[in-house]
Design a protein around this nucleic acid. Structure first.
Lengths: 234, 234
DNA sequence: CAAACGATGTAACCTGGGTCACAATGAATA
DNA sequence: TATTCATTGTGACCCAGGTTACATCGTTTG
């Protein structure tokens, strides 16, 4: 991406804030930006499929995406990651072959930066400092996956849902002691905890009746944090 | 470990064959071995727990271990990885903080090499070539975790068990078209697929009746590979 | 050899949660 | 305002698979 591009400043800002490049020198980061190209993706588009996965890597500037796996036989989907501005996708292909089965789909209209694995690898060889930047990021993702495995096999759906919500709590500026969770459809929530929509609905409405939570899509809030922690079984 | 140690040659051999150091120069590898210390672990011992996890890393010389997570509430266990000679544990702490909840337990009597994260990190800074050696290994593990998530949430227990067996097939030298699987207790198999012992027993005995498999602990063989593939749903 | 122990086989039972089917509520477009 | 479509609420049904409880083997140990 050229320095005179209209998007240059915004992209730079996002990179600057990204956990991916936390401790990377500013000048170096500017240099790196030259490697990347800019493009947009409409909501719903399959941003990266398994075919193209192994030869490019991406960094998100705006919008969110889900990285998921499907079972064509029973039509079920599981969301491995939700990613947003500053996140990368297919970074794992810097380590080896990249995701085989996973597919990334845009949840919103998106802007992304992309480059070839080839170029990224060369860059990495010339600038080993970048290893210290992105390796912790991959470590984080690995922990995320291990946590998902643990959740799926050690906890029931109610606990998994509670845990998902607890991980997405956002402190609310208006009301004390109350917090908000993300704007995600119940369908999406279900696909994140390895369950189906109706089950999520069931638990949410039970929790509403018991005054554990209140609100609806996009504006949930937690009334009884203690109860939620209890359901998450620590 | 000193060059005059009685274990030196064997250790070196294991390291040489390990996927961890596939494309590492022999001389460099010998150098590296100096970093490590040797010790043994009895079967059943908790080789590495979450407390010590973040300050040491290990390479297995002999014996196997399981890396697993527990839910104290319902007493259930899930095995994240089975590791054996040439495998490392807690390598992820080279990336960040290491496993928090996972525990490694020796399945057999073991010999391990160990060193501090600190020392390993310094070594890695001086020898960036090692990044190319162990990063693909971590990438592999990451794929393994993603596969487990996919299996747990997209497939039923029968398919998961079939898939586990298919992944552990070993070509049999004696009989054509027949293969053997690992020597693992049904309890262990269950903990690898996120289920319980009785369910594993159920499926195995059904499969025996339908002549899909035969044998018993330690000497299973697959009679009808096609049927097994079918149950694994591709 | 007896006894003790671990790993298996099996049967009876029960429930979490998945499936199906429809109604109700918005939000968006004509 | 009417219509369409996506999302959500809810009830009835049902089964995979988890739970409990023994019985049966092999293997190890006194």
């Amino acid at each position: 991406m050229q320095q005179d591009s209209q998007h240059y400043t915004r992209c730079m800002e996002i990179l600057r804030r990204s956990p991916l490049f936390r401790n990377v020198d500013n000048v170096l980061l500017k240099d790196m930006l030259q490697l990347f190209h800019y493009k947009t993706r409409a909501q719903g588009e399959t941003a990266i499929s398994s075919e193209s996965a192994s030869d490019h890597l991406y960094i998100i500037i705006s919008g969110r995406a889900k990285v998921s796996v499907y079972n064509p036989d029973n039509g079920r989907e599981h969301i491995l990651f939700l990613i947003g501005p500053g996140d990368g996708f297919d970074l794992i292909s810097l380590l080896d072959g990249g995701w085989h089965d996973a597919v990334a789909t845009a949840l919103d209209d998106m802007e992304v930066l992309y480059t070839t694995i080839q170029q990224a690898r060369e860059w990495l060889n010339q600038h080993p400092d970048f290893n210290r930047a992105f390796l912790p990021y991959l470590g984080e993702q690995m922990h995320g996956l291990a946590d998902q495995v643990a959740n799926l096999s050690l906890f029931d759906t109610e606990a998994r849902l509670a845990r998902l919500i607890l991980r997405n709590l956002v402190p609310d500026k208006m009301v004390q002691e109350v917090s908000l969770i993300n704007d995600l459809s119940q369908e999406t929530l279900a696909s994140m905890i390895g369950s189906v929509r109706v089950v999520v609905t069931r638990h949410l409405s039970r929790w509403k009746q018991k005054k554990v939570i209140s609100g609806r899509r996009g504006s949930w809030s937690v009334l009884d944090l203690q109860a939620l922690l209890e359901k998450a079984k620590q």
